[in-house]
């Protein structure tokens, strides 16, 4: 065992004056580890190994973790959030403490982390989930209406078969409609975003067909613009269901490896 406690890492910031005002997981006092270049990591002293436990505990830890990231983000304006359960050891062989290890890592990666922090300065992550309400969408469709009408007059066995056919018909109609709506929605959303990344999520409600599910990185002042765009989208398409989350620290945009879309020429 190394002498010094390990360090549990929440975030990396560039602001030299940052003093945490929140606490960490299980009320752990937050500290800051400085590197000579000016980058700083928000941590707590940790002795127990990775967090493991029942789901409810994990949920609480995650919220506490995100509170600590949030505090750094609100005060510094730019933050690189670190995912849950990242813990730095000391290196016994080299005789360095966890704080030295972490400071070394910050220093070695200044050329990566610094520009990324600058890029994220003054930005916010918003999450937009636009889905099509299948029942609302197909309510007026002539084919669906005539099949529904036909079902009424049929015996139960046939009705069961027809209801399967109806379900498939509704699904296909909604999916085709979603394909048709997507290009315009993506274009309208993207123009407000510094960066936009779609993600997949488990279907919350089988009656909703996902059209566009995206994490949006916006200039904080642009949050209003995205909201206004979503309002007009909602007004144009009443059968769309819109979920709008945030503002968050740029959780989905701190990644420095997948440089999708960058020019290679």
């Amino acid at each position: 065992m190394s002498e010094a406690a390990d360090l549990y890492v929440y975030a990396v910031v560039g602001d030299g004056d940052y003093r945490p005002t929140a606490t960490g997981i299980d009320g752990a006092p937050l500290q800051v580890v400085d590197a000579p270049s000016g980058l700083r990591a928000v941590v707590h002293e940790h002795t127990a190994g990775p967090y493991e436990g029942p789901d409810d505990d994990v949920k609480r830890w995650i919220l506490e973790h995100s509170d600590a990231v949030d505090d750094a983000w609100q005060q510094c304006g730019a933050v690189l959030p670190v995912s849950f359960n990242v813990i730095v050891h000391g290196d016994q062989e080299a005789g360095s403490t966890p704080a030295q290890q972490l400071a070394d890592w910050l220093e070695t990666n200044t050329s990566l982390l610094g520009p990324r922090l600058e890029h994220l300065e003054g930005t916010t992550e918003l999450r937009v989930e636009i889905s099509l309400d299948r029942a609302k969408h197909v309510a007026e469709d002539p084919e669906v209406l005539s099949l529904t009408a036909e079902m009424e007059s049929r015996p139960a066995g046939v009705r069961r078969l027809l209801s399967k056919r109806l379900e498939k018909m509704e699904k296909d109609l909604a999916d085709r409609a979603a394909d048709g709506l997507y290009p315009d929605l993506r274009t309208r959303l993207a123009q407000h975003c510094v960066d936009i990344e779609e993600y997949r999520r488990a279907a919350r409600d089988p009656g909703l067909v996902p059209v566009l599910t995206a994490a949006c990185l916006v200039r904080t002042a642009q949050t209003e613009g995205v909201g206004a765009e979503l309002t007009s989208i909602q007004q144009e398409h009443p059968s769309l269901s819109i979920r709008f989350l945030g503002p968050w620290p740029p959780y989905s945009f701190a990644d420095m490896t997948a440089t999708e879309g960058s020019m290679t020429a």
């Binding site: 990396v12 990775p50 995912s83 730095v88 890592w105």
Partner: peptide
């Protein structure tokens, strides 16, 4: 999502757990 500390650190060979 996040900062891919893990990826970068594993390249830099700084020992990390979890």
């Amino acid at each position: 999502v996040h900062l891919n500390l893990d990826l970068i650190i594993s390249v830099a060979d700084v020992p990390l757990i979890g």
